[in-house]
Nucleic acid binder design. Sequence first.
DNA 1: GATTTATGAATGAAGG
DNA 2: CCTTCATTCATAAATC
Lengths: 158, 158
Amino acid sequence: MAQGVFHFRVMTDEQMEVLRKQISVYATICQQLVEMHKAIYGKPFVHPRTCPRNPHCDSSATPGGHKMASRQRWSPTPAQLLVLESIFDQGNVAPSKQKVKEIASELANHGQISETNVYNWFQNRRARLKRKQPAAMPSNQMGSSEAAGSYDPFNVDR
Amino acid sequence: MAQGVFHFRVMTDEQMEVLRKQISVYATICQQLVEMHKAIYGKPFVHPRTCPRNPHCDSSATPGGHKMASRQRWSPTPAQLLVLESIFDQGNVAPSKQKVKEIASELANHGQISETNVYNWFQNRRARLKRKQPAAMPSNQMGSSEAAGSYDPFNVDR
DNA sequence: GATTTATGAATGAAGG
DNA sequence: CCTTCATTCATAAATC
C-alpha cells in the first residue's frame, strides 16, 4: 500500500468523518476503561501524558457520550430554502432520485449543496409533517398496535 | 463557516500509515481490555455512563411476562461496534447464517444483542459502503472552483 | 454565553 | 439485495 512514494493521498471530508467515528469509539471505550480503573483502584487513572492542547480534553465532560470534533453541517441558504419549500408545497413531497438530482443541480447555483442534502431535506420534511399533522385524519383509531411503519402515504415517486 | 469553504485535508502516505497503525493499536488494546473486563467480572462491559440517551442498557426483563411498550431499537455498545467493524474490515462483509450466530453469541457477552441485529448491521453496513465508495476518485483535485465536492455525491448509477 | 429549540444527518429495521 | 421509514443524535440557530 505504501508504495506510492511520490503521490499524496487526499482525504475527503467523508473519509475524515469515518476516521472521526472510529476514534470516537475508541475514545468512548477508553473513557469507560478509565472509569473502570477508578472503580477498581479507587483512584483516578493518571495519563502518562495529558492531552497537549486538545480543545475538548478538559472542561465539559461530554455527558454520557463522547463528542467528536465538530463537523460542519450543511444548512440551506434562504434562496435554497425558498425553492425547496416551494417544491414541497406543490405536492412533490417525495422526489425521485432523478428529480433530486435535478433539484440539487439547480440549487447549486445558489450555494453549496449536494444531492444528499436535498434528499435528507425532503425526508426530514415529510417526517416532520407526518408527526405534526396526525390530526385531520377521518376517524382513525389505531389504538391496538403501532402499525409498524408498513404504511407509507408518500410513496409517489418512480 | 459552513459554506464556501472547501478545505481538503491532505495526508502523505507516511502520515496515513502512522494513523493506520495507531488505530490498529487502539483497536487491539481496546479489544483486549474489553475481554479482560469480561474475564474479571464475568459480565458485559457496560458502564453507567455507557449509553448517553440510549436506554437499551436497561435490560430489565419485562416484568409480568407481557412485553410492554418501550420498544427501543437496538444500538451497539462501543465494544460491540468495535468487534463488528473489526470483522467487517477483515473482509468478512457478508457472514453466513452460521457465522452470524457465532458473532451474536460472542457479542452477547458485551451487551444485549440478537442474531437479527447482527444480520441487519452487516446488511446496512454493506449498503452504506456501496453508496459511499464509488464517490472516491483517485487523485482528482477538481480545482477549487468545483465547490460541490466536499460531501457525498449520492450515488445514482441505476 | 449558557440553555433551549430547530433541523441536518446517521442508523436500525421493515418491505419489496 | 435495494429502498424507505421511524427514530435518534448532534449541532447550528435562536432565545434568554
